[in-house]
Design a protein around this nucleic acid. Structure first.
Length: 699
DNA sequence: ATGGGTCCT
DNA sequence: AGGACCC
C-alpha cells in the first residue's frame, strides 16, 4: 500500500545503515578470485522448505482415491488443513467443520488427531534433507531450514564457465531468471540445490512443497510462500526491501507473535515500515535491549540466527482436548489412555525419559483459551527403564500414580472442576547405550549433547530389538555400540564415568526387586504433602501385584481410593493381564508404522526404526547422494544407517558434520581406523569375517 | 481453536 | 512453571 516517494527516500538511510555492516558484500559479486578464505562473514545461502498442505498430502498418499475429492483433515471440530481440490471451493485452513461443510457439502473428512503418520513422514523428509547436508532445522512437522552455504561453495569451485547459467524456479519480483544469474551465482546455485531437493522429496517420498532461497532464515521463509503450491522462489538482496515492505502487518513477520504485535501496536506501530523507522531507544525501553534490536532487525529483513540442527526431539508429548471433563475417574482414564500411547512412542524412540509432566487447561469463562498449568516430577529410574525396555503396561501402571499425584497438586477434586485439555509429556530424554563385549563387559559413557550433558547409562541386555532376524539384530546392536564409542571419544573428558552397578541389574527386575529398590527412589515428586504409613494393610493387600505397596502408601488417601475403585482395578490393573494386554495391543496398533507409506515406496520390514528412510533408498541406492555435495560420509551404507534409531542417526550426523575431514578420508587417519576397529571387536559373533566394514563402502 | 513442538525468563 | 514463539 502506497508508499509515497518521500517515504521511500527516507528509508534509504535506514536500509543502508543496517545492511552495510550486517550483510557483507556477496562473494558472488566478485566471483573471480573466489577466495573467501577470509573467513566467516560471508553471505550464507539458506533454503526454506514448506510442504504443501502436509497432513492432506500424507492422507492422499495413504489413500490415493482422496486425491480427486475435496479433502479436509479434521481435528475436533476444525479443519486444520485441506487439499487443493478443497481450496478451489473456498476452504481455508482452520475453518470450522460446519463452515467447511457449508461451503463444500461433498467435503471428505479424515480425522487427523493421531499425528503418528504425519510425524513419521515429517522425519523422513528431514532425514532426506540431512543426507545431503547436515545443517537442517525443523520448524513444526512440515518446514525445514537448511544452510547450504558450503554445498554452494563446493559447487562454485567446481563450476566451469557458466555464462548460460540461470535460476531454477522464480526469482522474487524479477521478470526472468536469466538476467541476474551471474551476478548472484551463489543464490542461483542455491536455487538449483533447492530444485534438486524438492525433486528428491517428490520422487522418494511422493511429497510436493515450496522452497525459498535467500541469505537468511527470515527471508528464506518469507519468500518461500510467494508462489504456492509446489514452486520455489529466490530472493535477491536487492529485493529485500520489497518483500519486507509488502508484508501486510507486523504480525506477518516470523518472530512477532500476538503479544509482541499488541505491544508494538500500543506504541503506534502496525506496519513493517513503522517498526523500521521507530527509534531503537524507544523500542529498547519497551522490550529491553536484545529483543528490541532483534525486532528492529526482523523488520529490516536482517536475521543472523544460525540454522541449528534440530536433532532428535527434546520431548515427546501426547494430548487430548475436549469440551469438558469433570470427574477424577474420567481424568484417570484419559491419562491412562494418553500414557499408553506416549509410553509406546517413548519406547520406539529408544531413549529414557527422566522427567514427566502433566499439563491441564481449565474451563473458565475468562480464561478460556489460554493458560495451561503444569506440574512435573522426576521419573524414578526403574520406571524409566521399563519404558525404555518396552514393558509398557508395567510402566503405564507405575506412571499413573505419579500422574494423579501431579493432577491433585493442581486440582482440588473435592471442589467442582472442569478441564478442557490434558497433556502428558516426557522430557529430559537420555540416550541409553548398551555395549556388551560378550562377557558382561559393561561400559558407560557421558556425552555432551548440543544443549546439555546427558548420561549414557548401560544395560546388560538389549531388549528393544524386536527383530525376528538375528542377523539384523546383530548389526543394529553393534552399530549402537559404535555410536556410543564414537561419541565417547570426544566427550569422555566432560565427566568421569559413573559406576553402572545399578544399570547392570536394571533390565528385568522382579517385582520384589523393585520394592527393595524403592527405598532409594521415594524422594520423587510424590512425597510432598503425602501421608505415608496410615493406610492399613488389608487395603494394601488388594493391590495388584504390579503396583508397589510402598509407593501406594505414599499416595494420598483419595488417590489410593481411586486406585482401588472398581473402574480402575477392573479396567487398568487386572492381574489376569488380559485387559492390560488388550490395552497395550490397542495402543501399539494405533502407533504401528503401517505399510502404506506411499505409492512409490515399498513396505518397510518390521522392526526397523520408527523413522526409517530405507524405503527411499532401496530403489535408487546408487544414485543416493554420497559424494561431492553430500555430507553423508561416503563410507556409510545408507541402508544400515537408516536402521539406527532416530537419535543415534541424528547424533552421528552431527558428529560427521564436525569431523568431516577425518571421516571423508577413510584411510588417512587414526581416529577413523580405531573407530572401525572397535566396531569390529564389538561385533563379536560370527560376523567377524565380514565385520561392519561390509557396510562401509569405499568412497 | 488442534496436537504438537521450540527456547527463554 | 509459565510464557513467548512456531507450525
Amino acid at each position: 500500500m502506497d508508499n509515497s516517494e518521500d517515504e521511500l527516500e527516507e528509508n534509504e538511510a535506514v536500509w543502508k545503515n543496517s545492511f552495510v555492516d550486517s550483510v557483507p558484500l556477496s562473494l558472488a559479486a566478485a566471483p573471480g578470485p573466489s577466495l573467501s578464505k577470509t573467513s566467516p562473514p560471508a553471505d550464507r545461502v539458506i533454503l526454506h522448505f514448506d510442504l504443501d498442505c502436509f497432513y492432506a498430502q500424507v492422507e492422499m498418499i495413504r489413500n490415493p482415491a482422496l486425491r480427486e475429492v475435496p479433502l479436509g483433515i479434521q481435528q475436533k471440530y476444525i479443519i486444520v488443513t485441506c487439499n487443493y481440490v478443497a481450496r478451489e471451493q473456498g476452504l481455508t485452513k482452520l475453518m470450522s467443520v460446519t463452515d467447511a461443510k457449508e461451503k463444500c457439502p461433498q467435503l471428505v473428512l479424515v480425522n487427523g488427531e493421531d499425528l503418528t503418520h504425519y510425524r513419521e513422514m515429517s522425519y523422513k523428509v528431514t532425514e532426506l534433507l540431512i543426507s545431503y547436508c547436515p545443517l537442517v532445522e525443523r520448524l513444526g512437522f512440515d518446514e525445514n531450514f537448511m544452510d547450504v552455504t558450503e554445498m554452494v561453495e563446493r559447487r562454485l569451485a567446481q563450476t566451469l564457465e557458466s555464462n548460460t547459467f540461470s535460476f531454477k524456479g522464480h526469482v522474487y519480483n524479477q521478470r526472468s531468471a536469466e538476467v541476474k544469474a551471474s551476478d548472484y551465482l551463489r543464490l542461483a546455485l542455491g536455487s538449483h540445490i533447492a530444485a534438486e531437493l524438492r525433486e528428491a522429496i517428490y520422487t522418494k517420498l511422493g511429497l510436493t512443497g515450496c522452497a525459498g532461497i535467500a541469505t537468511n532464515k527470515l527471508l528464506a521463509k518469507l519468500v518461500s510462500g510467494t508462489f504456492k503450491p509446489n514452486q520455489q522462489t529466490t530472493l535477491l538482496p536487492e529485493n529485500i526491501r520489497d518483500i519486507m515492505g509488502h508484508l501486510s502487518s507486523l504480525r506477518k513477520v516470523p518472530g512477532v507473535g500476538h503479544q509482541t504485535a499488541k505491544r508494538l501496536q500500543a506504541l503506534g506501530l502496525v506496519t513493517v515500515k513503522d517498526l523500521q523507522l521507530f527509534p531503537l531507544t524507544d523500542l529498547v525501553r519497551e522490550f529491553g535491549g536484545p529483543p528490541a534490536q532483534r525486532l528492529k532487525n526482523l523488520a529490516l529483513g536482517v536475521d543472523d540466527s544460525p540454522v541449528t540442527p534440530t536433532g532428535a526431539p527434546q520431548s515427546l508429548s501426547d494430548e487430548d482436548s475436549f469440551k469438558k471433563m469433570s470427574s477424577t475417574k474420567d481424568v484417570l482414564e484419559k491419562i491412562h489412555q494418553l500414557l499408553s500411547s506416549l509410553v509406546e512412542r517413548m519406547h520406539r524412540d529408544g531413549r529414557q525419559p527422566q522427567t514427566f509432566r502433566l499439563t491441564i487447561r481449565r474451563f473458565s469463562a475468562t480464561n478460556k483459551w489460554f493458560s495451561r498449568e503444569s506440574r512435573q516430577c522426576p521419573i524414578p529410574s526403574h520406571i524409566g527403564q521399563k519404558i525404555a525396555a518396552g514393558s509398557s503396561d508395567d510402566a503405564v501402571v507405575q506412571l499413573l500414580p505419579l500422574a494423579m499425584k501431579l493432577f491433585h497438586k493442581m486440582v482440588d477434586s473435592s471442589i467442582t472442576f472442569h478441564l478442557t485439555l490434558i497433556n502428558v509429556c516426557f522430557s529430559n530424554l537420555q540416550t541409553r547405550r548398551a555395549v556388551s563385549g560378550g562377557k558382561g563387559c559393561i561400559t558407560s559413557f557421558f556425552r555432551a549433547s548440543p544443549r546439555k550433558i546427558q548420561i549414557l547409562s548401560s544395560q546388560s541386555q538389549g531388549d528393544s530389538s524386536h527383530s525376528v532376524d538375528g542377523h539384523c539384530t546383530d548389526h543394529q546392536f553393534s552399530t549402537h555400540g559404535m555410536a556410543a564409542q564414537h561419541l565417547s571419544l570426544k566427550t569422555v573428558t566432560t565427566k568421569s564415568p559413573r559406576s553402572s552397578e545399578a544399570a547392570l541389574h536394571g533390565f528385568k527386575w522382579k517385582q520384589s526387586t523393585v520394592v527393595a529398590e524403592e527405598e532409594n527412589q521415594k524422594a520423587s515428586c510424590c512425597t510432598t504433602g503425602s501421608d505415608p504409613g496410615e493406610t492399613n494393610d488389608t487395603v494394601t493387600h488388594q493391590l495388584p501385584a504390579n503396583i508397589d505397596p510402598k509407593v501406594f502408601k505414599l499416595l494420598p488417601e483419595e488417590i489410593q481410593k481411586e486406585l482401588l475403585s472398581p473402574a480402575y482395578v477392573n479396567c487398568l490393573l487386572s492381574t489376569s493381564d488380559s485387559q492390560n494386554i488388550k490395552d497395550v495391543t490397542a495402543a501399539a496398533n494405533e502407533l504401528e508404522p503401517s505399510d502404506r507409506v506411499s505409492a512409490v515406496n515399498h513396505q518397510q520390514p518390521a522392526g526397523t526404526s520408527a523413522f526409517p528412510v530405507e524405503n527411499v533408498l532401496e530403489e535408487e541406492k546408487l544414485s543416493f547422494p554420497q559424494s561431492s555435495d553430500c555430507e553423508f560420509p561416503g563410507n556409510v551404507d545408507p541402508k544400515v544407517f537408516s536402521e539406527l534409531p532416530l537419535d543415534v542417526r541424528m547424533e552421528l550426523m552431527s558428529e560427521w558434520k564436525q569431523q568431516k575431514p577425518v571421516l571423508k578420508a577413510p584411510f588417512s587417519r587414526k581416529p577413523v581406523r580405531s573407530l572401525i576397529t572397535k566396531e569390529r571387536n564389538a561385533l563379536g559373533k560370527g560376523s567377524q569375517t565380514n565385520s561392519l566394514l561390509k557396510y562401509f563402502k569405499r568412497s
